[in-house]
Simulated assay, not measured.
Amino acid sequence: MLKVYGDINSGNCYKVKLLLSLLGTPHEWVHMDILAGATRQDSFLAKNPNAKIPLLETAAGEHLPESNAILNYLAEGTAFLPAGGLPRARVLQWQFFEQYSHEPNIAVARFIARYLGLPEERKQEYLAKQEGGHKALRVMERQLAQTPYLTGSEYTIADISLYAYTHVADEGGFDLSDYPALRGWLKRVAEHPGHVTMQQFLPAG
């Protein structure tokens, strides 16, 4: 059985949980408390020297880090990932956009506010992330005003990659009221059969 090391509060980890749910794939979820230093323990570093989650462990005991790499691995041969050519490249295009333009702003602002409680010493960094975050949201809004999903008419792992942090962007101070196409997309994704929320898997306590 597949095993996933992750924190469901993390958008990057939630991506993996969401795809596994959509696929109906049995797996074991191992909760990692990143603030308590769980990823810096020797036992975890032996699996991922980069000390980051999510981390996928295959049935053969092999380990694969990086959320979008995990999504591509799990989605291979499914409707969530085109077989090749330009359609697959479009998926990768949006996944790179997520990692380089979206996550560094929206996810970091959320981390500072939600995980750290917006400490005064990081307030300027938090405010600086707002401009870049809204720029990324505007790029998504423009695309979603033209197509129901980011790569066209089909729901793919490109949408999963960007849904993860976008649907909780308000926790990082981002008001989505000016993005009607994006909000429609959020609703479509959430209504897809097999969809699960972060809240369904939050650890007790």
Rank of each mutant, 00 (worst) to 15 (best):
K17F: 06
Q199Y: 00
R142M: 04
E66S: 06
S10E: 01
P203E: 07
L74Q: 05
H134S: 02
S101P: 00
A190S: 12
I106K: 02
L176S: 10
K47F: 09
L71S: 11
W185R: 03
K15I: 03
L144C: 02
L86T: 15
A59H: 07
K123M: 04
T197K: 02
G173K: 09
Y126F: 14
K15G: 04
A46G: 12
P26T: 15
T147K: 09
N50V: 11
M140G: 14
A79N: 10
L64H: 07
E57C: 13
L20S: 11
T156M: 04
A38T: 13
M140T: 12
H31K: 04
C13S: 15
W185Q: 02
L182H: 04
P104E: 15
A59T: 13
V139R: 06
H27I: 05
A158F: 00
Y149H: 11
G61K: 11
G11Y: 01
A79F: 04
D7V: 14
P65H: 12
A109R: 01
M140E: 13
P65D: 13
Y73Q: 06
T166D: 01
N72A: 15
H27N: 01
K15P: 04
A181E: 06
E62P: 00
T151F: 00
W185D: 01
K47M: 15
P119H: 08
K3W: 02
Y115E: 10
R188G: 09
G84E: 06
G173F: 07
G173L: 10
G205D: 12
L144R: 01
V91D: 00
W94E: 02
K15A: 08
L23S: 11
L86C: 12
Y126P: 01
H195Y: 10
A145D: 11
A109V: 03
T166L: 01
T197F: 00
F111R: 13
R88N: 05
L81M: 10
F96W: 07
V16C: 13
T25A: 05
L2C: 12
D178C: 10
R142K: 09
A113T: 05
A89T: 13
F111S: 12
H195K: 05
H167F: 11
S67W: 02
K123Q: 15
G84A: 13
R138V: 08
L92W: 06
R183Y: 08
K52I: 11
N9C: 11
L35I: 14
Y179E: 14
P104M: 13
Q99M: 13
I157Y: 03
T197N: 04
S161E: 03
H192S: 05
S177M: 07
E171T: 05
R88K: 10
P203M: 07
L86P: 00
E171G: 01
A89W: 06
R142L: 05
N12K: 03
D7Q: 13
Y5K: 12
Y5Q: 08
G152N: 08
W29P: 05
Y73F: 12
Q124P: 00
R188S: 09
A158Q: 00
A79K: 14
L2N: 14
V189Q: 02
A181D: 09
D33M: 06
G85E: 08
P49G: 10
G37N: 08
L176R: 08
A59K: 12
I112H: 04
S21H: 14
A204T: 15
L144K: 01
P148Q: 07
L64M: 12
A204V: 11
A190F: 00
D42E: 15
